[in-house]
Amino acid sequence: MIECPSCGRRQQPLLICADCGSPLAATLDCFAALGMPRKLTIDLGALERRYHELSRMIHPDRFASSVARVRDASLRATATLTRSYRTLRDPVARGLYWLELNGEKLAENNKRVPPELAELVFEVQEQLAGMHDAPADSDAACELAAQVVARRSQLQATMDASRAELERNFVKWDQRPDEKMLTLELKAILSSIAYLRTLIRDVDRALENSKAA
């Protein structure tokens, strides 16, 4: 229970006081902040509606002329709300957060990179090194740059497929959240996405640099 900074009554830790409707600076997990069930599958429409509704109610503009502790609660509640919404809206961020809430660490017993993915990383990085080393404005450099651009869209397609697979599997993981094998599977997909994201970032940086050169 926490004390409402506006009416002073004891309240459940939520973002809004049930008695007077003022913002509360409660420490909440992302699901609780938005009043969503702690599940990987989420109703995105309901999430968005809830976010807009709560944001209107606790918005700092509404409390601009209130006393300092109420203004402060409004700012803190808004920060919690926004962070929670951003985390839950994105399936990858939501998956990582769900692991965290369940006391799981992504990197724990999870250092092996799947061989096909490792091959891909090394192959693409070789390509980037080749592009970097080719004499500027040479035919070879142009050709290598074109190959990297093609590779970029291929990687994006792989990323999209992995994200789709992640979301498809959310249902399964929600049904059996305690099954160790399924948690490992979730970690594996989230890890693959992390490796792909880093690789795509490196490709983008290399393409930026080659344009600048």
């Binding site: 990197a107 250092k111 092996r112 990179v113 490792a118 090394f122 970690k187 992390a194 490796y195 994201r197």
Partner: peptide, 13 residues
């Protein structure tokens, strides 16, 4: 040995 850090996406061979 090929290992990776899934938090940051680093890969080491």
């Amino acid at each position: 040995g090929v290992v990776g850090a899934p938090e940051c996406g680093d890969v080491m061979k």
